[in-house]
């Protein structure tokens, strides 16, 4: 089934110079392999078309069920040089959660359990 990342993940984003970092965290461990498979650097670069002018790097944190994306040349110069409202990419985590991906039907039943304490 088609789902938005918002339904299976949460995110936190910030800046380092003109690079935004977006940490994407599976809401349940079962969703982490799906993030690994679906949310590739290429798809993230495509998703942020018009915002991210540089390359996208991805680091895996299996221990945290998380991925860390670095979006280079994405903040209009970064820091005080940027003219944007979101000069620090604070909302880019939420922007990534707009992405739609394919979730195997057998995992669909886990979606509503947005309870982080339910994690083993």
């Amino acid at each position: 089934m088609r789902v938005r990342l918002l339904q299976i993940a949460h995110a936190r984003s910030g800046d380092k110079g003109d690079t935004a970092n977006v940490g994407l965290i599976a809401l349940r461990p079962e969703f982490y392999p799906i993030l690994l498979k679906e949310v590739t650097c290429e798809r993230v670069k495509q998703h942020f078309k018009g915002i991210c002018q540089g390359p996208v790097e991805c680091y895996e944190l299996a221990n945290l069920n998380a991925l860390n994306f670095l979006l280079h040349d994405s903040l209009g110069g970064g820091g005080t040089l940027s003219l944007r409202t979101d000069a620090q990419g604070k909302t880019y985590g939420a922007a990534l959660l707009r992405m739609e991906i394919e979730l195997p039907d057998e995992l669909a039943g886990l979606i509503d359990g947005r309870d982080p304490e339910g994690m083993p």
Partner: peptide, 15 residues
């Protein structure tokens, strides 16, 4: 675990 993980990935480069 969720709130701590969010802060851990904040402003992260190469983990």
């Amino acid at each position: 675990v969720a709130t701590v993980t969010e802060q851990l990935v904040y402003e992260m480069g190469d983990p």
